[in-house]
Computed example of a mutant assay.
Amino acid sequence: MPDFHSLSLPINGALFTVGALLVWFAGTKLSKYVDLFADRTGIGQAFAGALLLGGATSLPELATTLTASYSDAVEMAGTNLLGGVVMQVAVLAVIDAFIVRGQPLTLFSPKSSLLMVGIMLILLVALATAAISSGEVFSIAGIGAWPVGLFAAYVLSLWVIYRYEGNPRWEPRGEIAQPPETARDLKDAHQAAYREVSTRKLVCYFAIASMLVLIGGFIVAKTASVIADQSGIGQGFIGATLVALATSLPEVSTTYSAVRFGAYSMAVANILGTNGLEIALFLPAEIAYRDGPIFDAMQPSAAFLGSMGIIVTSLYLWGILERRDKQVFGMGIDSLAVLLVYAGGMAIYWTL
């Protein structure tokens, strides 16, 4: 493994850019493959986005979390996970502002299953915030009860989402807005381009793209961590901002790609599902960190990031439920609220 600390800041910056481009390229492919797989198998876009796409795009977070925890940079590992939850919801707001045209993003996502995904995410983040506030209850062989409980809650949430999407108990009323014509045309062209590709080949393509995301995400995360050390900025704030942004690049690229070809529900489910997996990654972080329970080593200020994650997720659930068609500065009111909360919250977190 190369020693990035021995390299200069400009070289690490160049490597960061190369890794980011690799993550972006492979990430845009992932959303297309998952969308095709969901259509062919009938498993549902919300579930596919939450499990398959969310899992693949979380590979950089897994690599970063394991590396940071094993290197005793446990504060960076924890704030990267919680900061990533807030960062990735803000990604939806940015995409709503610059990519979606004509109507807010949440107007194009009239699926009750997305509300279930969001509710499960709020539950997981609330549990993680409680773990930070209370500290570890007990541990066996260095593995605490909280990380195991969080992972179990994540697995349970997947089962709940899958069962609900297969038999939703209610459907939205009123106008069901359709994606812009260009997005439908793009998706139809994409379906036609892969019509002759078998499902087995799609799975292979998905695995290759996932590996490229992992490699690129590892480079991005490692160089971002070194850049943080070389700049002298605190581990916690860098973990919640720069490293969280670096490891969120797959979500940015896949969500951008999904929105471009009209898979709006998958785009939202990708972000919300990935955020749920972020919380589950506290278990591998606990296993990699051998100096005691991870929640005992984290600063209480990390709970503030968890609270921000609950707030921004709640704002998007409000948008999905209400489905307003009004825009402010080219985005939905919910997206504007998310960006304001993110900017204000990170300013407060800087002072903690």
Rank of each mutant, 00 (worst) to 15 (best):
S307W: 11
I294E: 01
F295M: 11
P300D: 06
G292Y: 09
F282Q: 04
V268C: 00
S265W: 03
F295R: 02
V259N: 04
S307P: 06
L283F: 10
M308K: 11
A269F: 10
I294L: 14
F261H: 13
G276W: 01
A280E: 00
A288N: 09
L277E: 03
A288E: 12
F261R: 00
S301I: 09
I279H: 00
G292H: 15
V268Q: 03
L277I: 14
A297L: 08
E286D: 14
A280I: 00
L277W: 08
L281H: 01
A288H: 07
P284E: 02
F261T: 07
L272W: 02
M308P: 13
P284T: 03
L305V: 14
G276Q: 00
A303F: 04
P284S: 08
E278N: 14
I294V: 15
E278R: 07
E278Y: 09
A285C: 04
A280T: 00
G306N: 13
I294P: 03
Y264A: 13
L272Q: 05
A269D: 03
Y289M: 02
F304K: 06
T274S: 14
Q299P: 10
E286I: 01
M308N: 05
P293G: 04
R290P: 05
V268S: 00
N270D: 10
A297F: 08
S307E: 09
D291P: 09
R260Q: 11
N270P: 06
G306F: 11
M266W: 13
A302H: 13
N275S: 09
G292C: 14
P300S: 10
T274Y: 03
L277Q: 12
I271P: 05
N270L: 07
D291S: 13
M298C: 11
M298A: 10
A280M: 07
A288S: 11
V259E: 07
A303P: 12
R260C: 05
L272H: 05
L305T: 14
P293D: 08
G292R: 10
A297S: 15
P293R: 09
L283P: 03
L305I: 14
E286G: 08
G306K: 12
A280L: 00
G273S: 12
Y264W: 04
P293S: 09
I279V: 15
M298W: 15
S265I: 08
R260W: 02
S301E: 14
T274M: 14
A302F: 13
